[in-house]
Amino acid sequence: MMRSLLIRGMIAGLVAGLLSFVFARVFGEPAVGAAIAFEDRLTAAAGEEGGVELVSRGVQSTIGLAVALLLYGAAIGGILALVYAAVYGRVARLGPRATAGLVALVGFLAVVLVPFVKYPANPPASSSHETIGLRTGLYVLLVALSIALAVGAVLAARRLTVRFGWWNAVLIATGVYIVLVGLVGFLLPAMDETPADFPGTVLYDFRVASLGGQIVLWATLGIVFGALAEGSGARRSRSVGRSARTTPGPAV
């Protein structure tokens, strides 16, 4: 059961990684290329030699990008399957597809969108080399806190449902999550490193493409994993005559 779910999660992740690769290749790479052109102009203006290229731009922007997104997709897909296994039948009275979609949605919000608001994706040559340690630490910290608060919000919504009904419970828990994660974002230091002459359109295009690629990835993951999970474990518990999909009862 767990083995099959995990494999299905990773397969869904590979599909998601592949689709987001297509998106990133078409919409993201032009901005990455423009940022690296800006970097090359800076290097040339400073009269420095460009460093030795370990991996050519041609490889980075094709196979490298594909491998990165496929591995990321597979890893996220596997973790999604583990979370799904913990959540299914425990948090809400939802079928496999709805549970998978919900886990992917909450995952996207907590892991990608909320951290992005504070520490958005940055194109090459828009951050300082020296602060990589600080930026990595702050980013990991924010993602971890966001996940912890989201888990707390889900548990709170589950408890509050008994008293307020599931809709109000979800609203309250979401509101509390936003306030707390907003406080965390307010307390963490801002990183303001983009060079003044960095092209604004490149920064904008890059960030929109980055977010778009993540939306493609998590949406595909939720939909594909839902379909695959429905085909595995749910078959056993689905009773004849009524489908879990058509009667979403109150959350337990």
């Binding site: 993201g28 990455v32 290229e53 991996v55 490889v59 990008l65 990165a68 997104l69 951290p115 493409a209």
Partner: peptide, 11 residues
């Protein structure tokens, strides 16, 4: 270097 573009675009 190999996964470089992916790192940037994944945030």
């Amino acid at each position: 270097e190999f996964v470089h573009d992916g790192r940037h675009l994944l945030g």
